[in-house]
C-alpha cells in the first residue's frame, strides 16, 4: 500500500488526463467542425455536453451501486471509500446534468424547467444520492456508517433505471432515446469522444476521492468501538479526513 500523501503520478491522474484530452478533442470537433443542427442551429451543440454527462452519470451511479454491494458483502474500507467517492462524482454529474438541461431547455422548449417525468426523476435521483452522502456524514460509528450508507446507495440506485426508461414509460416533453439512427453521422464522432471523455474524467475523479478517503476509513473500521473522528466536521476536500483523530 502506498504511503505517500502527495506527489507521484497515479492511475487516476492518467484517467483524468485521458478524459480531459478526449473532451477537448470532442468539443473542438463538436463546436468548430461538425455542422450546426438543422432545427436548433448552434444551440444544438450542447448535445455534446449534455448527452455525455447523462451517459457517464449513469455509469458512475452504476459503479456506486456495485461498490455498495461489495461493501456490504465484504465490509472492507476500500469499498466503503469507493461508495462515497462514486456517490460524490455521481451527484456532481447529476447537478451538472440538470444545469445543462435547463440551459438547453430555455431556448428550445421555451422553459428552464417543467415537471416532466425525465426531469423530475433525475432531480429525485440527485436528492437520493445527496441523502447517501448526508448519511455518511451524520453517522459517527464506522460500521453503521458503512452498512447504512451502502443500503441507502442500493435503494437510491433504483431511481437510475427509472430515469433511463422514463421517456419510454411515460409521456414526456424530453425527447425519447437517441440512437445512431436518429443522430446525424457528422455528430456521432464528437459525441462519442466527449462521452468517453466524461467517463474517464469521472473515473479519475472517483480515483482521486477514493484515495483521499480510503486510509481514514480503514483506520475508522479497525477501531469500531470508537466513533470516527467527527466525520460531520470532515470537509470533502480534506484528504484522509480522520487521520487527525482516528486514533483518539
Amino acid at each position: 500500500m502506498a504511503t505517500t500523501q502527495s506527489g507521484g503520478l497515479r492511475w487516476e491522474h492518467g484517467l483524468l488526463a485521458l478524459g480531459l484530452a478526449l473532451l477537448a478533442v470532442g468539443h473542438v470537433q463538436g463546436l468548430f467542425f461538425a455542422p450546426a443542427e438543422a432545427m436548433m442551429g448552434d444551440v444544438g451543440r450542447i448535445l455534446y455536453v449534455h448527452v455525455p454527462t447523462a451517459w457517464a452519470d449513469m455509469l458512475v451511479y452504476t459503479a456506486c451501486f456495485g461498490f455498495a454491494v461489495a461493501a456490504l458483502w465484504t465490509g472492507k474500507a476500500t469499498y466503503d471509500a469507493a461508495v462515497e467517492a462514486s456517490a460524490e462524482v455521481g451527484v456532481l454529474y447529476n447537478a451538472l446534468l440538470l444545469f445543462q438541461g435547463s440551459v438547453w431547455a430555455r431556448p428550445t422548449w421555451g422553459v428552464f424547467w417543467t415537471w416532466d417525468p425525465r426531469l423530475t426523476t433525475s432531480a429525485v435521483v440527485l436528492v437520493l444520492f445527496l441523502g447517501v452522502l448526508v448519511l455518511r456524514r451524520v453517522i459517527p460509528e464506522p460500521e453503521r456508517r458503512l452498512n447504512l450508507s451502502a443500503i441507502a446507495a442500493v435503494l437510491a440506485y433504483v431511481g437510475v433505471p427509472i430515469v433511463y426508461f422514463s421517456v419510454k414509460w411515460w409521456r414526456t416533453l424530453h425527447q425519447p432515446f437517441s440512437s445512431p439512427q436518429t443522430v446525424d453521422g457528422s455528430f456521432i464522432t464528437p459525441l462519442r469522444l466527449a462521452a468517453f471523455g466524461m467517463i474517464f474524467l469521472g473515473a479519475g475523479l472517483i480515483g482521486l476521492r477514493w484515495r483521499a478517503l480510503r486510509r481514514g476509513l480503514e483506520r475508522d473500521l479497525a477501531t469500531p468501538d470508537l466513533p470516527a473522528a467527527a466525520p460531520a466536521l470532515r470537509l470533502p476536500g480534506e484528504a484522509g479526513g480522520s487521520a487527525a483523530g482516528g486514533a483518539l
Partner: peptide
Amino acid sequence: DRLMVKHSNEYKAPEGEMSAEERKTLY
C-alpha cells in the same frame, strides 16, 4: 399562458452548407 416546444430525438445536419445568414434565421 405557457407554451413549450417538443424537440424530437432526431438531430439532423442541415441540407447543404448553412450560411451565417441561415443560422441567424434559426433564432
